[in-house]
Design a protein around this nucleic acid. Structure first.
Lengths: 152, 152
DNA sequence: AGCAAGTATCTTGCTCAGCGAGATAATGAG
DNA sequence: CTCATTATCTCGCTGAGCAAGATACTTGCT
């Protein structure tokens, strides 16, 4: 079923492999979301929230919506949904009382770990088979692809 | 804006980089879809159709739906949409007249090239800076990640 | 101070993607 | 030839997300 793209001088095999990786990770995300009563957007939102929390960044409703490509109405509905499910709480910013800060609940963190834990463990054990130089190569590739994605 | 994950002994920097890559490629896809009056699902469908065509595989309505995770009603609606937009035609299979084969129109191929062309060019020129051994490393990494994604 | 302009979020009313259930039509097994 | 199976489509519905506009707060200007 998994046709193996053969090495090609033009690198197209790697392009197709990369695309296949993103498609499968996407499907895995959709499956996990459905299994937990979430919509794909809800899962993306949780990921953005957990990322921000990890980076010590305060995320507002508006910033979250912008990050996901939603308009303000959609963002309100999304936050309503996640709040109703107990994944976050709305907290009025005391500095600027127009803003609504999003506080992640422990439950959401647990869900994030349930989602990311297993694949992270697998990728890590895959990375155990890479020495420092090989990891640097992978890092250079991923960084390049990340930056190449934005121009579209 | 793009915080650079620093190399870490446990490989978490690469895990986060990988996730960031998929998020950005996803957003790029959504932007392109919106710009062309398509829904994200429509674009995913076109990609699946073009992949199948490239592999010389006949894709039926049902198989396409399964590949995208849609039920039969959603699949019918999707095919209706793409047919109305002129990206494909329904062709009754003469061997098994229950089946509907999906024939991709040239227009859809052009759209696929418009979508994939620029990023492919960028990734290729990125790959020009990788020698054969480094490409093999990248290939091994991507293959491993692809296979790790399915278990979730 | 006080008012205008700007900004963050929410409300309303709507469209349409996708689901569940079931209909229809064709094939295949006994 | 009948019954079970498979492929697609139809119908009715839920709900995600949009556009437009309301509301509440902040900031800059005078």
């Amino acid at each position: 079923m998994a046709r193996e793209p053969q090495p090609q001088p033009d690198g197209m095999d790697l392009v197709h492999l990369l695309r296949e990786v993103t498609v499968r990770l996407d499907l895995a995300g959709a499956r996990f979301a459905a299994r937990n009563g979430l919509h794909p957007t809800d899962l993306r939102a949780l990921i953005a929230l957990l990322d921000a929390a990890r980076a010590g960044e305060e995320l507002t409703a508006g910033r979250l919506g912008a990050r996901l490509g939603l308009n303000s109405a959609g963002t309100t509905a999304l936050v309503d949904r996640l709040e109703r499910l107990g994944h976050l709480r709305r907290v009025r910013d005391t500095r600027d009382r127009r803003r609504v800060l999003l506080a992640v609940e422990p439950q959401a963190i647990a869900l994030g770990q349930a989602f990311f834990g297993p694949p992270i463990a697998r990728v890590r054990s895959l990375l155990d088979t890479f020495d420092a130089e090989e990891r640097a190569t992978v890092r250079r590739f991923l960084t390049g692809v990340r930056d190449a994605a934005d121009g579209t």
